[in-house]
């Protein structure tokens, strides 16, 4: 991992089109600004991890449950 020390207001460029700026440092929190192409998905790590975990759980469905849910909820 590349480790750089930055002060408030200073930034980091990644390649030509990604820029990360340290906007504010307040106690144990840091506000970070990110400029990146819109097609790049940017996520808070813990939320991304939650979705990933949920997807894996969802994919691990056993046959018994699969059969059950077909009947659990009849459409009107």
């Amino acid at each position: 991992m590349l480790i750089l020390t930055r002060k408030s207001g200073e930034g980091i460029n990644i390649g030509d089109d990604i820029k990360i700026t340290v906007l504010e440092i307040k106690g144990r929190q840091v506000r970070v600004g990110i400029e990146a192409p819109p097609e790049l998905m940017i996520h808070r790590e813990e939320i991304y991890a939650k979705i990933l975990e949920e997807n894996r759980l969802a994919a691990r469905l056993n046959s018994e449950s699969f059969e059950k849910i077909k009947k659990i909820w009849k459409k009107d």
């Binding site: 939650k50 979705i51 949920e54 997807n55 759980l57 449950s65 059950k68 849910i69 659990i72």
Partner: peptide
């Protein structure tokens, strides 16, 4: 939305965040 189904299917959850 994607559904997660635990052992008890009545406790199924929906991933509204993703």
């Amino acid at each position: 939305v994607i559904i997660t189904i635990p052992e008890d299917p009545y406790k199924m959850t929906a991933n509204l965040r993703g």
